[in-house]
Design a protein around this nucleic acid. Structure first.
Lengths: 221, 221
DNA sequence: TCGAAAAACTTACGTTGTTAGTTTTGGAGA
DNA sequence: TCTCCAAAACTAACAACGTAAGTTTTTCGA
């Protein structure tokens, strides 16, 4: 065959393209995510992708949809609100952590899959069920969202490029906290030391926020 | 003059380029931030910028530095830890909100200016001063960071493209919380309704987290 | 059976970041 | 004061990117 026309079995599909794009982004970083690179990995030429996605932006939408389908809000069905929210927030965080590189792109796109909307509905329902006024429930759900996304977007640890002790002369308090964080042993899934600080920071923030929420719920009872 | 060579007064400098870049990003969005666009606004041709920044990535570093110089941790000097942290987190958030478009780029770069490092040192010092163990202080500082950045990165509100009531058939709890949030009157700097939900969500998260922190500090006393 | 639409292709255009080499000027050292 | 090198603007041009246009082959519904 010389001038290849339509193949017997389609080589591409919107979802397959998006899945390949997620692979590339995870393996080689978001800068490597070019239309030609995606096509190459699928044994195809760049412009062929445009038979299935209308633009790169549209492809990013498809990737967002694919990621959000990984979300699972079943943990929120529990009667124990604290355990439910904690498990949901963790699983939510884990999904985005898996796609860490394109989080900034994905996080700013509208929420449209049933899985993602179901998650927001489930956490809203849980908060309402335990007595929070609706407007306050919206704010609390947003706050938890922010904590999850912030912890994935930025890694607190990675911001500090010097060794903890090298901050001591100019920033003694910062150095003290970082050195202490560096000495923390591994606990469960969180790695030891500075490498685990991001996860521990997320866990700490969630625990404190839920502590505060507990007090609030008691008062409303 | 025909072939323009070195000008009498330099037209460019690293900081001036970065400042212009921030202007463009704020006014026309991050996609409009091209080397040629920056140059044009400064009355110069694209490649001239490379006499002052070594690459676009380097320019992004310079922009990050400029933004982080706007940070101000003086609020943390107060004896009242709660008021201090609240004021600091708000001012921190306001700075990033002003540069909302390039936050994803900026947030992932190392913290190197005195202002930014001073902020982390100040909040670490405040937490230590009030009795938090150092490792826990690191985690708490990280958590507050996440809340601030998450609230700027994503706008909870903007994720929902339908009108609140249109979620009711499929996602009743979500609809109820969003409708209630939409009915909230303006309070201080936060606008009324859905438009203010992002700020209120941040405030709510911060308040709850600090409530939890208060309980923790009391126990440590 | 036939024709339109689908799905691959090739070619090519404008933009982007960036390099190379040119020209003019500023300023330090003789 | 003169000289000369480095600084700072320029022009020209490249490769890579997203994408449009038009071509070819195959599938599938009327």
């Amino acid at each position: 065959m010389h001038g290849m026309g339509r193949p017997t079995n389609p080589l591409l599909s919107r979802d397959a393209i998006a899945a390949t794009a997620l692979d590339i982004s995870a393996e080689e970083g978001p800068d490597a995510l070019t239309m030609r690179a995606i096509a190459a990995r699928m044994g195809v030429r760049g412009p062929s992708l445009y038979n299935h996605v209308s633009s790169k932006d549209d492809l990013l939408d498809a990737m967002t949809a694919l990621i959000s389908k990984e979300l699972d809000s079943s943990a929120l069905a529990t009667a124990d609100w604290r355990a439910g929210i904690t498990a949901y927030a963790r699983s939510y965080r884990r999904v985005f952590l898996r796609h860490h590189g394109i989080l900034p792109i994905v996080a700013r796109r509208p929420v449209q899959t049933a899985e993602a909307l179901g998650g927001y509905d489930a956490i809203s329902a849980a908060l309402l069920r335990h007595g929070l006024p609706p407007a306050e429930a919206a704010e609390t759900a947003a706050a938890i969202d922010y904590l999850v996304l912030g912890s994935v977007l930025e890694t607190y640890t990675a911001g500090f490029i010097r060794a903890p002790r090298d901050y001591r002369p100019e920033y003694p308090a910062l150095a003290e906290t970082l050195e202490a964080a560096d000495a923390v042993p591994a606990a469960g899934p969180a790695p030891a030391g500075l490498a685990g600080l991001d996860e521990r920071g997320f866990e700490r923030g969630l625990a404190l926020l839920l502590d505060g929420l507990g007090v609030r719920l008691d008062r409303l009872r």
